[in-house]
Design a protein around this nucleic acid. Structure first.
Lengths: 186, 186
DNA sequence: CTTCTTATTTAACGTTCGTTAGTATTGTAA
DNA sequence: TTACAATACTAACGAACGTTAAATAAGAAG
């Protein structure tokens, strides 16, 4: 009954601790304490500390990313990207922390080489995906790749503001910035 | 004689380790090993592990930041910001790592609350400084603050690419992106 | 009620951590 | 060469770490 409840709760608390203190700063004991279970219970559900960390990144983080990128329906370009970013404000606390932890690994501030490689592969898909999305709307632009690159860079900072720095970004500010880069798409 | 040499060398190695493994993942023993000195020598020059970390951020990092912001001479806006970012490519390895560590603290991926507060204060000065710099050149723009905000956001990602992800950003790519945001300043 | 699996605990293992006491070596000034 | 401060080391402290063995408690199945 409580079977998967405890497993889930452990992961939730782990996300919090890995976020706050990093991989090495997080201890199994602290997690067990906050979960209110005994220390070996963590090992009952997860083979090791590393597996717990990897599970969060490989499953939880990439789930969020996939969920996010699957919402790719385009009408107005600026509207779309504004919503794409704005929606991040409404992620659950848990999802936001998982996302944050993922970015931490993405910047190789935590995690190991294996996870870094996963991130590298994922990163390679970003630019082409947005280029493909934007290409039809950039008819009058001479340097399409530059615009796409600039937009993606801008999106990255805004994601970081919401997810990593945990700030609320109002919709109009998001729209303003995106509109400046996509000026020719209005 | 070797007085300050060893002190300096310890800090250099510490920067490397704090970067790679974070505060908790870094051990005084590992630092001492790489420096090729005995373990208590670290304590001869630095009161504690925390003081060593704080010293790097408070002195080294903010030195780099101050050096960077002091170079504020403006002729052509786009030229200026292009150079501002491009020059980061040529930072020494040591400076780059210190910068990277600073960003890690800035994103509160490492360090404690005290350092975070320092970063917050510093961050507050960024936007006004660039606004003041850019204001004379934005005569024809209706929403000046949005342009400045977008530019600063864009700069942040490019800095992160060079310093955190350790990538080389070619001058023309930097210029392209900045020019898109500062289109009306050419 | 018994049997067997699943869930949970107590207690401890070996290791490594940050830190320090105590001692030796070196350099310098008299 | 002697005296003294600065620089360096060996050895160890107690605490905390990841992990596991062994035992117990709870639930389901017969």
């Amino acid at each position: 009954m409580a079977n998967n409840d405890l497993r889930k709760r452990i992961k939730e608390v782990a996300v919090e601790h890995f976020n706050k203190d990093g991989y090495y700063g997080t201890t199994i004991r602290n997690i067990a304490n906050e979960v209110n279970c005994s220390l070996p219970m963590i090992y009952y559900y997860y083979k090791s500390k590393k597996e717990l960390f990897d599970d969060i990144i490989k499953k939880e983080f990439f789930d969020i990313i996939k969920k996010q990128t699957s919402k790719l329906k385009m009408d107005n370009v600026i509207d779309f990207y504004t919503r794409f970013i704005y929606d991040l404000n409404n992620l659950s606390d848990y999802d936001k922390k998982v996302y944050r932890l993922g970015i931490k690994v993405y910047l190789s501030f935590d995690g190991d080489e294996e996870l870094m490689n996963l991130m590298d592969e994922w990163e390679k898909t970003i630019m082409p995906r947005h280029y493909q999305l934007l290409e039809p709307y950039l008819k009058n632009t001479d340097n399409k790749t530059a615009v796409v690159r600039t937009l993606v860079h801008l999106l990255e900072t805004m994601i970081e503001n919401i997810v990593v720095k945990n700030r609320y970004l109002p919709e109009n500010e998001i729209r303003e910035e995106i509109a400046i880069v996509l000026k020719d798409c209005e």
